[in-house]
Design a protein around this nucleic acid. Structure first.
Lengths: 240, 240
DNA sequence: AGCCCGTGTTCTGTATACAAGAGGGTATCC
DNA sequence: GGATACCCTCTTGTATACAGAACACGGGCT
């Protein structure tokens, strides 16, 4: 396995450490879309020098989170809902394809994949978790498992990239109890379909499931941004 | 358009310049899979200092071309045919999906997409190009056009990444005249199918077309590597 | 009042100096 | 003779110094 695909790479470099700190600040909305800053500021804040900071910043730039203005500072890239839609579309494609390909799996492997997911999602409503962060993590695990079942490591890698890119809006989806309930119900329903060999049915449900999540996340993101800064400007397009 | 998706970014930084030089050396087999080198060597060779060199090296690392050994130099990652197969698989998925979605395009847009491709590929055999590099470039253009027709910029971006990653073996496919002829024939056939609305048919042809290319490229890569270094070692797996 | 030009500050891009650890070779000991 | 421990060299990781360009501000001119 290559270094970049390790699930939780324990930072041994300062660069990785700074990278993870910045990413967490992005996800926690401590760095808001449109915010501008300099390398020196980040260096001071993290205690590292500009060298590893730059390494982290350029990585985040290539991943699409930041943008650098030539000799004129950095900025958090505004949320582009068109791009997020495109990423959701790609995510659906990868997950649907993976589900459809599960048809070729042996019953044994199939069972091996479904069992842990059923244990997590087919539980009594009274025993469900309500911790948004926990649910978000489990949800990601659910969808990654489906893609992993495809057996194609590149599917997994790209899917993980896409997931990371949309996580900033997706995780908000689990702040509403009704959405958590829907997630439990829809995951259980998909698992049922897979159990009885309804791969196409499961794939259809998946698309609907993700689409709903996308729409909800979009709404919640707009609300969250309005709270994070009382005023926000729209440049006339779908970017904020 | 984001910086990273510019088709041919004219390097204004030394880092980009070094990046492109190294990548070209990789594609030209001047840097062979398994080769080891240090940052200082690259700095001397390119005339830049270690700072931009490191930026370029880390970029190539995250793109999967290189690997860094902690305080112990860099190496060109060996060709992993399993990974290449996975990448081909992903490429087929993206292109097939794009083709199937062309069904929803208006006749006008469809024509706008097909016309330049037909002008290039539906030509008299006597007027065909035989320049491997030229054909490789046109072939890439052909497949990228199909994905671009999907209208999803993220499809395009990921497809471009994948294409870049497999280019090192794919371009060898056009060193054989028979393969060039097959490429012309198959592209023309697919364009015909698309003209008469046979989207599924075209998608099927595409998969076969890419599969053939993959198998041929694999064979030729092994030959090329044997020529580039008289001896080569296999570590028992499918990596070289 | 408005516009233009020059200057100064600031920030990134690049080069270089320094630190720390991994690997190999050699000498020594058993 | 073989194995082990030590030391030296080499390489990356990190910090800092320097250069060049972009922007902002202010003064002078029309």
């Amino acid at each position: 396995m290559s270094t970049q695909t390790q699930s939780r790479p324990r930072a041994q470099n300062l660069a990785d450490s700074v990278y993870q700190q910045l990413k967490s600040e992005l996800f926690e909305f401590q760095l808001l879309p449109g915010d501008r800053f300099t390398e020196g500021e980040v260096a001071d804040r993290t205690g590292a020098s500009r060298t590893p900071v730059r390494q982290a910043l350029y990585r985040l730039q290539r991943e699409g989170f930041l943008a650098v203005n030539f000799r004129n500072g950095w900025e958090v890239r505004p949320l582009d809902f068109d791009q997020l839609d495109a990423l959701y579309d790609l995510r659906i494609l990868l997950e649907q394809t993976s589900i459809r390909r599960m048809e070729k799996l042996s019953a044994e492997k199939m069972n091996w994949i479904l069992l842990p997911l059923e244990a997590r999602w087919k539980v009594d409503p009274a025993r469900r978790s309500s911790d948004a962060r926990q649910i978000a993590s489990w949800d990601e695990e659910f969808h990654c498992s489906l893609v992993a079942a495809s057996g194609n490591p590149e599917f997994v890698r790209v899917h993980a990239e896409v997931t990371d890119r949309i996580q900033i809006v997706r995780r908000l989806d689990f702040t509403q109890p009704s959405r958590i309930a829907a997630t439990y119900q829809e995951h259980a329903s998909m698992l049922d379909a897979l159990r009885r060999g309804g791969f196409l049915e499961a794939a259809d449900q998946l698309a609907t499931h993700i689409e709903c999540s996308r729409v909800e996340a979009r709404k919640l993101t707009l609300l969250k941004l309005q709270h994070a800064r009382r005023e926000f400007v729209s440049d006339g397009g779908s970017t904020i």
